[in-house]
Amino acid sequence: MQRRSDEQGQALLDALLEGRPQEPGLAARAAAALGLPEQGRYTVVVFRAGGCGPADLSTAADGMRFFRRTRADCEILVVALADHDPAGLAPLLARWCPGPGGIGPPVDGLAELGAARRLADVALLTCPPGTAGIVRLEERLPAALVASQPELSARLLADVFGPLLALDPADRALLVRTLDAWLECGGSAGRAAGRLYCHRNTVLNRLRRLEQLTARSLSQPRELVEMMLALYAFELSAPL
Rank of each mutant, 00 (worst) to 15 (best):
L224V: 03
A31K: 07
T70L: 13
E38K: 03
R140A: 00
Q212P: 08
G35A: 04
P91R: 04
L17D: 03
G63H: 03
E223V: 01
Y42K: 11
P128R: 06
L124A: 09
A192E: 06
E139R: 10
F161I: 07
S219R: 14
E223S: 02
L207S: 03
T43F: 07
A94K: 14
L113Q: 07
A28I: 00
D108K: 10
L164N: 06
C127F: 00
L183A: 09
A60S: 13
L204S: 14
A154S: 14
E38Q: 15
A55S: 15
A192P: 05
W96Q: 07
P100R: 08
Q8R: 15
T70G: 00
L174S: 09
P129K: 10
G19H: 08
A61F: 13
A123M: 09
R140T: 04
T59L: 02
V135G: 02
E139Q: 12
L92V: 04
R20V: 14
R20W: 09
S219T: 15
Q2D: 13
S219F: 03
L110T: 03
V44E: 02
V79R: 14
C97E: 11
L183M: 14
P169E: 01
L156P: 05
Y197T: 04
G63Y: 12
V176S: 06
A154F: 04
I76Y: 01
R48V: 13
R65Y: 06
A30N: 08
T202G: 12
A173G: 09
R95M: 04
D121A: 11
G50E: 02
M1K: 06
T43D: 09
D171R: 15
D168S: 07
Y232T: 01
T43R: 05
V45T: 15
P54Q: 05
Y42N: 01
R71E: 15
A82C: 05
W96E: 02
D85A: 15
E226K: 15
R118D: 15
L77F: 09
C127V: 03
P24H: 03
R4G: 07
Y232V: 00
D14R: 13
S217G: 00
V44P: 07
L92K: 11
Q39D: 10
R117P: 07
G130E: 03
R191V: 12
Y197D: 14
Q10M: 05
A55Q: 08
L229R: 13
R209G: 12
V44G: 12
R95D: 07
E112C: 11
G130R: 00
R216K: 02
L213E: 04
R20G: 11
T126M: 05
A49S: 14
I76W: 04
A33F: 00
A80I: 03
D180V: 06
R4A: 12
A193P: 10
L13N: 05
A143D: 04
A11H: 14
A61E: 14
T126W: 06
A49V: 12
A11N: 12
L175Y: 05
L92H: 11
R208V: 01
D85F: 04
P221E: 15
L224T: 11
R117V: 00
F47I: 08
R41D: 12
L175V: 05
A72L: 14
E235M: 00
G194V: 08
P105F: 10
R136E: 12
I76C: 09
S148I: 06
I103Q: 04
E235H: 10
Y197N: 13
V225C: 05
V146F: 02
Q39E: 14
R195E: 13
R48F: 04
L165G: 01
R140Y: 00
R208P: 02
R71F: 11
P37N: 10
P105C: 03
